[in-house]
Amino acid sequence: MPELTPPETLRRLELAVTRRLDGLLHGQHLGLLPGAGSELAGSREYRPGEDEVRRIDWAVTARTAVPHVREVDADRELTCWVLVDGTASMDFGTAEVEKRELAVAAVAAVGFLTAGTGSALGAHLLGADGVRRFPTGSGRDHLLCVLRALLTAPRTAAATSHRAGRAAAAQQPRPTFADGIDGLRRAATRRGLAVVVSDFLDGLPDDPAGRPDWERALRRLATVHQVLAVDVTDPRELELPDVGVITVQDPESGRRREISTADRGLRDRYAEAAAAQRDQIARAIRRAGAAHLELRTDRDWVADIVRHVHRQRQLTTRAPARGVAAWEGTT
């Protein structure tokens, strides 16, 4: 991808999604989060062994003293909103692609899979200067326009020093990741699919047991929309190789530090801290009620998406059986 021009990159992404993902993920209305639908179409009596307990309409059940379940119409017109993290921490990659390029690939997968008659997609790009908004639109041309804008978006200038980073933040506070999620929630007025693509490193507390600043905003988003959190990582963020003395820099603050990677203890502590950080992020996403899709710059992102969808479908098919058994056990 780095050696390709934007039109060639878009063509490569479209082929990867339509030939590989579309061929592996079958269904009348393709999507990353399969389900029956969200439009309420009335209620009917509960049929043991066929209906899910979580679909029980408790208001009707209380009035009639007979268990009823909600009926929903399948979504034929899907509104999808995407928030892409374009901050300095995404301009990093030591494998085949950078994290920002992998984020564009994730948006391409969502866009091409959810594209259909009446479906619409809108996008927000979070950067150091604020949020760039792309209004909702439908069709292949609109999606390609959004992807081209994401590919050609200017990189966030990293702070040259820790003092310079603090001074820039004091002069013009940049929007936080939580602000970006809240902005997406306010813009997405119609219930649909909300996709948040980021490395989720912004707003993490020092205490591994603490909760990130963006967790509450993500939970509020998940109360209205079906949320997919695409977590983008690089292998060097998880472990350090033994390459001697290196200089590392925080792209957000500009802080630099020299470390000796020959120290086995330091590499082990780094790996443990990184694993704890990823676990902290995963737990926060689960608590917020969002689906978690992990993509890495050193892996096949198409295969990761396929595995995620198949896992979601298995959970969807297993949940009804457990729910019916629990309900029948109480009757």
Score class of each variant (00 low, 15 high):
T5R: 14
P6M: 15
P6W: 11
P7T: 07
R11H: 14
R12M: 07
R20M: 03
G23T: 10
G27V: 04
L32G: 03
G35H: 08
E39N: 05
G49H: 13
R54H: 06
W58I: 11
V60T: 15
A62H: 04
R63W: 03
P67E: 12
R70M: 04
R70G: 09
E71H: 09
A74E: 12
D75S: 14
T79G: 12
A88N: 09
S89L: 00
T94F: 02
A95H: 12
V97I: 12
L102A: 01
A106R: 03
A109W: 06
L113Q: 05
G118A: 12
G118C: 07
A120W: 12
L121E: 04
G122T: 09
L126Y: 00
A128C: 01
R133Y: 08
T136C: 07
T136R: 13
S138C: 08
G139R: 02
C145K: 11
C145V: 05
V146I: 15
L151A: 05
L151D: 00
A169F: 00
A169H: 07
P173V: 04
P175G: 06
G183H: 14
L184W: 07
T189H: 14
T189W: 05
R190M: 10
L193R: 06
A194Y: 14
V195M: 10
S198R: 00
D199G: 00
P208H: 04
E215D: 01
E215K: 12
L218K: 10
T223P: 03
V224K: 08
V224R: 14
D234V: 09
L238S: 12
E239R: 11
D242A: 13
S253K: 08
R255Y: 06
R256C: 12
E258Q: 13
E258A: 08
S260R: 09
S260I: 01
T261C: 01
A262Q: 03
I281G: 02
I285V: 06
R287L: 09
A291F: 09
A291W: 08
A291E: 10
D298L: 04
V302M: 07
A303W: 03
I305Y: 06
V306E: 06
Q314N: 06
R318D: 06
V324R: 15
V324K: 14
V324Q: 15
A325D: 05
